[in-house]
Design a protein around this nucleic acid. Structure first.
Length: 473
RNA sequence: UCCUGAGUAGCUCAAUGGCAGAGCAUUCGGCUGUUAACCGAAGGGUUGUAGGUUCGAGUCCUACCUCAGGAGCCA
């Protein structure tokens, strides 16, 4: 190989006219008699090469002609702008050096044709190489970075809770159980919330970011058994401030993705206008219908405590219920929503479909929410909680609440929910020694990625999805 | 856990109860601008498993297995 600069495909345009070396894989190859059109990929993008038989040594032409897809190689050639190329550039190949050829007896299983879900998931380790999957993982990385960045730059301290826990955090979900040495059982965490309440009362503003596990036998496009969650928890913060926080947080993430991933979103096939609508100024944003909805029962609409640059619609549970009743009466929903029940998936889809921004639904009936949620002083049958529903029917991406800060009330709640008091003694201590109002939320990364990328299934949002029926590869 | 649907070539899919097929992939041949290239040829099958009905089952019946996505539950 001659001494040439080693470049990546994403920045190859800066080397127009130069002879460069790429290190990558053979993505596809077409031929037309004495012309070869190999397409190379290197993880940053793809570029088509052109190889006229007369222009290269016979051995280079023959080697490339017989090379199987996904063989690894280095390629040397001259970068040329070409209007026929999708990316604007082509490579006039001078030489190739095969690093590791794929055998024709056992060719690369994933072709450029269609494949079924089962086959692709069985070959997830290879599927990741396809342009769409790579693009999704790049966007995921930015979403995770932007999420951390938001808290890091707003005075939050990252404090990660344990992954092995002695008992159920909320006493509801199905947990993965394992032996913990001799006589004990341990469980994989389903939320770090209780632990970061402790670190919040130590450090003020904290967040955690890590994997969580749910053993529920859910089998839908929105569920994984192992997923990543980012959870802030803030001392002295009440519900309205929590909603401001969630609003600013999501706004920051969407802003970053649009800044850095226009090209990836195009590969994924995302309608970028839908994301831009999330950032649109509030005044122009809210449609007539939305105004009507928000003005009905205006007394209940939460006013942001801090002016937020980008306001999301806020609905109380009662307002959302009224919206669903109306929709059912008009035949837009198959089943009526029973007041007092949680919203089902079709309900959430309908509510979110009425807005182009994420919707914050707050003050659910306390009876259907977790024991640690603070009752609303204005109506103790309601909890000071909020669910953020992503647009376009992507469902709940954030769930949060103000926490019970009274020792006596929390103890009562633990007993009412038949939870083992001893296991929660440390949690009660937080209310015994200098309790303050505090709030937090959790966002599931995969649902956020699915929404932002416009995917129809969360299994594509994580490198190796863990679902009810699949733990391979 | 419940409901619904699907299992046929390496992959994606056809096949009135009557000879097991196509495209892609692989191999061989052709083509100097192809964009999931195209054209010609070849090889490639225990039709998810086990029973049953029938002269005859990929097709009908029963059970089971696997997968899918919807409910419930959740992020």
């Amino acid at each position: 190989m001659p001494e040439t600069p080693i470049v990546t495909i994403s920045t190859i345009g800066q080397h127009e006219g130069q002879t460069v070396t790429l290190r990558g894989w053979l993505y596809n190859i077409r031929s037309s008699g004495k012309l070869l059109f190999p397409t190379f990929r290197d993880g940053t993008g793809t570029i088509q090469g052109i190889v006229p038989r007369a222009a290269v040594p016979e051995q280079v032409f023959e080697t490339l002609k017989n090379l199987q897809l996904e063989s690894s190689l280095t390629v040397t050639g001259q970068v040329r702008a070409d209007s026929r190329a999708p990316s604007g550039y082509e490579l006039d190949v001078h030489n190739i050096d095969v690093i590791s050829p794929v055998s024709p007896d056992d060719p690369y299983p994933i072709t450029l044709k269609e494949h079924g879900v089962d086959f692709l998931m069985e070959h997830r380790h290879l599927w990741l190489r396809s342009p769409r999957q790579s693009a999704i993982l790049r966007v995921r990385a930015t979403i995770m970075r932007a999420a951390s960045e938001f808290f890091d730059t707003h005075g939050f301290i990252r404090t990660d809770p344990p992954i092995l826990t002695p008992n159920a955090c909320e006493g509801t979900s199905e947990l993965f159980e394992m032996d913990y040495f001799d006589d004990d059982k341990a469980y994989l965490t389903q939320s770090g919330q209780l632990y970061i309440e402790a670190t919040a009362l130590a450090l003020g503003k904290v967040y955690s970011f890590g994997p969580t596990f749910r053993a529920e036998k859910s089998k839908t496009r929105r569920h994984l058994t192992e997923f990543w969650m980012i959870e802030p928890e803030v001392a002295h913060l009440e519900l309205s401030g929590l909603m401001d926080l969630a609003e600013a947080f999501l706004t920051h993430i969407v802003t970053r993705v649009l800044e850095h991933h226009r090209a990836d979103l195009k590969v994924i096939g995302r309608d970028v206008e839908k994301l831009e609508a999330v950032l649109a100024p509030t005044a122009n944003e809210i449609s007539n219908q939305e105004s009507v909805i928000l003005s009905e029962g205006a007394a209940e609409v939460e006013e942001p405590a801090v002016a937020s640059p980008n306001k999301f619609p806020r609905l109380s549970y009662d307002q959302a219920h009224a919206m669903l009743e109306k929709a059912y009466a008009e035949g837009k929903l198959e089943n009526p929503h029973r007041y007092g029940d949680d919203f089902g998936s079709p309900d959430e889809t309908y509510i979110s479909s009425q807005f182009s921004k994420p919707v914050m639904v707050h003050r659910y009936p306390a009876a259907i929410k977790a024991f640690y949620m603070q009752p609303d002083p204005a109506d103790p049958t309601k909890a000071l909680c909020v669910d953020v529903l992503a647009p376009e029917g992507y469902g709940e991406i954030i769930g949060g609440s103000q926490r019970v800060d009274s020792y006596d009330l929390l103890k009562q709640r633990i007993e009412d929910h038949n939870l083992p008091l001893a296991a929660f003694q440390w949690y009660l201590d937080l209310r015994k020694y200098g309790s303050v109002p505090h709030s937090g939320f959790g966002m599931g990364i995969e649902r956020a990625v699915a929404w932002i990328c416009g995917l129809d299934h969360v299994r594509e949002t994580i490198p190796f999805a863990r679902t009810l029926n699949r733990i391979y590869p």
